[in-house]
Design a protein around this nucleic acid. Structure first.
Length: 254
DNA sequence: GTTGAGCGTT
């Protein structure tokens, strides 16, 4: 979807893609187009949206016809306040196919003569993590802390250098044991230890299974872990995989 | 109604 109503990418042969991050969730391409178009010839403005919800992911791609104009827009719009959010404009490092751009076109065309023009926001950048093509499915935001939406797909995406400050020793020595310990503790330490350590959160009941007549007690309280253990211990994974997502990768794309 | 590191589609 392009702002021009065209189908797919117009022409990336001679266009320079700019990645606009930190934009508001309600900011649309129409809002960015005039903003970027003022600094150069904008070929296309694309804002990835969620398939399910259809909401913006919080970033957009602006394609310029010339690199010099694109660079100017980067220096100009980078850090600009749009819709109440401080956007971050930078050259896209990856192409639509998740491939590294280095044809000398869209790739970083930062003139060394200009020195460090982006000293305004010297953020770390990585170029060897794009291989994870599954990133397109990852939660568009960290709301998973509150809402378990795509927790099943959550993996080591942001572990590059954000929250992964712990020493590798922890994972090598403790990591394995922890995994093993967690597994076995699931069958006997259910009502003894923390009943809800990392248990499965059937976000929504697959089937409209109404609560039993005896709904006097709150199922979230201790009562829940008292009668549930037997059913979960039988086949915790079987239920989840049989009722919800049998193969996360199977239905990756429609 | 929420969210906030990052890299893209008819």
């Amino acid at each position: 979807m392009s702002h021009f109503g065209r189908s797919g990418p117009p022409d990336i042969r001679d266009t320079y893609s700019l990645l606009v991050l930190n934009i508001s969730f309600r900011t649309t391409a129409d809002d960015l187009y005039p903003l970027f178009d003022r600094y150069g010839k904008v070929v296309d403005v694309f804002i990835p949206r969620d398939r399910r919800s259809g909401d913006s992911r919080g970033f957009a791609f602006v394609r310029y016809k010339y690199a010099d104009e694109a660079q100017k827009a980067v220096e100009r719009l980078d850090g600009r306040n749009v819709d109440g959010r401080n956007i971050m404009v930078q050259f896209a490092k990856y192409g639509p196919n998740a491939e590294p751009i280095r044809k000398g076109r869209i790739v970083e065309v930062l003139p060394k003569t200009s020195g460090r023009s982006r000293s305004r926001s010297p953020r770390p950048r990585y170029r060897d993590d794009y291989r994870d093509r599954d990133y397109r499915r990852r939660s568009r935001s960290r709301s998973k802390g509150r809402y378990d939406r795509n927790r099943y797909r959550e993996r080591d995406y942001r572990h590059r250098s954000r929250s992964r400050s712990q020493s590798p020793d922890y994972y090598r020595g403790r990591g394995r044991r922890s995994d093993d310990y967690r597994r076995r503790s699931r069958s006997l330490s259910y009502d003894s230890a923390s009943p809800d350590r990392r248990s499965y959160s059937p976000r929504r009941s697959p089937m409209p299974r109404r609560t039993p007549p005896s709904c006097d007690e709150s199922p979230d309280k201790g009562s829940h872990g008292k009668r549930s253990p037997p059913s979960r211990s039988v086949s915790p994974r079987g239920r989840l995989a049989d009722s919800r997502s049998p193969s996360p990768r199977s239905s990756d794309q429609d």
